[in-house]
Amino acid sequence: MASKLRTSSRSQKWRGVVGFTFTGVATLISLGALFSILAYLIIHGIGAIDWNFLTKEPAAVGEAGGGIAPSLLGTAILVTISMIFGVPLGVGVGIYLSEIAGETHFSRVARVSINTFIGVPSIIVGVFVYFILVKPTKTFSAVAGGLALGIIMIPIMARTTEDVLRLVPNSIREAGLALGAPRWHVMLHIVLPAARAGVITGGILAVARVAGETAPLILTALGNEYYPTSLFKPIDEITLRILKYARGPYDVWHQQAYGAALILVFGIAIGSLLLRLTTRTQSAAR
């Protein structure tokens, strides 16, 4: 009996060693890959970044100099339009699913649909907007690009909103109702503020996600060499710029593609960091 016990404990120990080794090595390899990407971007891209790069329009084809200012401005505009479409609808769906729908057939179908849509490749959204907006209006446009990004945002926002609202304890809802508050009042003045930090986090994550989208924009926003003049004309975006420069034949373009990618990565990183800091002070204040 004793020997049996010893054998099994030895094999468990062995399994433990294998488990720790595998997961540890997997972590190292993954982090290594991520940091190589970052290092690669920094090495190749840092040289491209200067004041002109951030503030100038692209130079003539193949010439040195010029910048990606229209792409940065375009990105900001597209993200703003996407939030106008995506945030109210997404938050609305999340509130509906968490607070109002309950467990009905409809809400179950809605929940499964939302989860499925999070995984749908973004190019499909691009194709959809291309056929319903770009083709009928016969022009690529900022609105079409923003709409595509907004549609991508809806399920992400809906899912995170529903999740954080469900984290709000039911006892707080009961407390509000027991004071005679109508359900909508409890939802708006107690539940939503309690979940505010989570909803904001979800919003920023959704923005970070769509800010890095390329595929749907090729079919909707198209890209542009100049500053945007109208929301109903093609507009540039940073990933479109990266795509164009990376595929181009000129060394200058390649370097600028790395530079633009570096800016995108750091922009999103700084955004997430600021978000962490602000939500932390918020929850500390509460």
Partner: peptide, 27 residues
């Protein structure tokens, strides 16, 4: 709304709103 004004209730676990003490009482 009237009924719950006239008949108040406190629950098994304290469930204050995540608001200030003042705002809890004035809700």
């Amino acid at each position: 709304t009237q009924l719950r004004r006239r008949v108040g209730m406190a629950f098994q676990t304290a469930n204050p709103f995540p608001k200030s003490i003042f705002d809890n009482v004035t809700y």
